[in-house]
Amino acid sequence: MSAFLIEVNGQKYSVDVDEDTPLLWVLRDHLSLLGTKYGCGIAQCGACTIHLDGNATRSCILPISQVQDKKVTTIEGLSKNGDHPVQKAWKEMDVPQCGYCQAGQIMTASAFLKQNSKPSDEEIEDAMHGNICRCGTYSRIKKAVKIASNNS
């Protein structure tokens, strides 16, 4: 175990964990930031998506040792009151069913829209491909990404 200095949502933390501990579990168990979800642990479902220096990243396979000196943003840090354009679009479309995948979906979509503010349908599909929604809310997600792209 060693102490790691990390910055999450603009706040600095020191956590004492094994160096191979994935960021996901540091967030959830050590920092009690529970919005980032565990779905597969092998970068296949996207439920654990966070922003690492602004890029959508799977936190379940990201060892804490690789996070130092980088800025982490989680769903809790995306906006104060759930009013990020992507979150607003998600609400407008009433996207969620069970809701479990949605934080990851929103994190993927918000990072993507920063890089491509006016995406085509196909670009949206490519960008969101790594995020599974077991409840099948895909068409609403696609529409919400479009709405957000028009509003951001």
Partner: peptide, 23 residues
Amino acid sequence: TDKFNVDLNGIVQGKPLFGIDYK
């Protein structure tokens, strides 16, 4: 009439609503 999911705001903000989030 159309009514939004009552947990909508909590879900999009990543609030700890699920069993796995219990602490």
